[in-house]
């Protein structure tokens, strides 16, 4: 089993952190993983991607991910990028931070899910430098649809990364997103 996930976000949104936390949660589940950042324009606001590879065996490949099983979009505005669904498997999953019913040029066998991570972040007061912090909520959402990593492992990894109140708020964000993700089609 090998599972590959591509995260889309903007510089400063914690995309690499999300990919790494998911990799840590996988190890927590007794699986093997890699978190791979892609380096391009490392500037605040610029579109960025990061990847997580999960397997039930040690991972020895280091080449890039071309055909992800799932795509996680942290900022709805990125949907206007033409490359957003590039390479997604025909049975792939798309998870978007959105409250809207989304129109997508996807193929019918691909499934799309939404969760309003922004409103979860705002409700919990997770705002840094004017931006709602949505990466931890999106982890809860992806855990739900991946179905190989428990929400408890995600919460535990979040609480290990941020101690105290920040850890509690961020793990609650993941839990709320886990509970509120909806399939949209």
């Amino acid at each position: 089993m090998i599972y590959e996930i591509r995260f889309h976000g903007r510089g400063g949104q914690g995309v690499v952190t999300a990919a790494t936390l998911l990799a840590e949660a996988a190890v927590f589940e007794g699986l093997w993983s890699q978190a791979i950042p892609f380096f391009g324009a490392e500037r605040r606001g610029a579109p960025v991607v990061a990847f997580t590879r999960i397997s039930n065996k040690p991972i020895r490949i280091y080449s890039q991910i071309y055909n992800p099983d799932a795509i996680v979009v942290l900022d709805e505005k990125l949907l206007q990028l033409r490359s957003i669904l590039q390479g997604l498997k025909s049975n792939g999953i798309i998870v978007v931070n959105s409250s809207e019913k989304l129109k997508f040029p996807k193929i019918p066998s691909q499934r799309i899910f939404t969760v309003n991570a922004t409103s979860i972040a705002l409700k919990l007061g997770l705002v840094v430098a004017g931006w709602p912090v949505v990466n931890t909520a999106m982890l809860g959402a992806i855990a739900r649809v991946l179905n190989i990593i428990s929400i408890e492992s995600i919460e535990e990894c979040i609480r290990r990364k941020w101690r105290g109140e920040m850890g509690e708020k961020n793990s609650l964000a993941a839990r709320l997103a886990y509970e509120n993700i909806r399939e949209r089609d």
């Binding site: 790494t20 993983s33 890699q34 950042p37």
Partner: peptide, 11 residues
């Protein structure tokens, strides 16, 4: 190797 190891997180 740059990035393939340096920035890729793994157990």
């Amino acid at each position: 190797d740059a990035f393939s190891l340096s920035h890729t997180a793994a157990p």
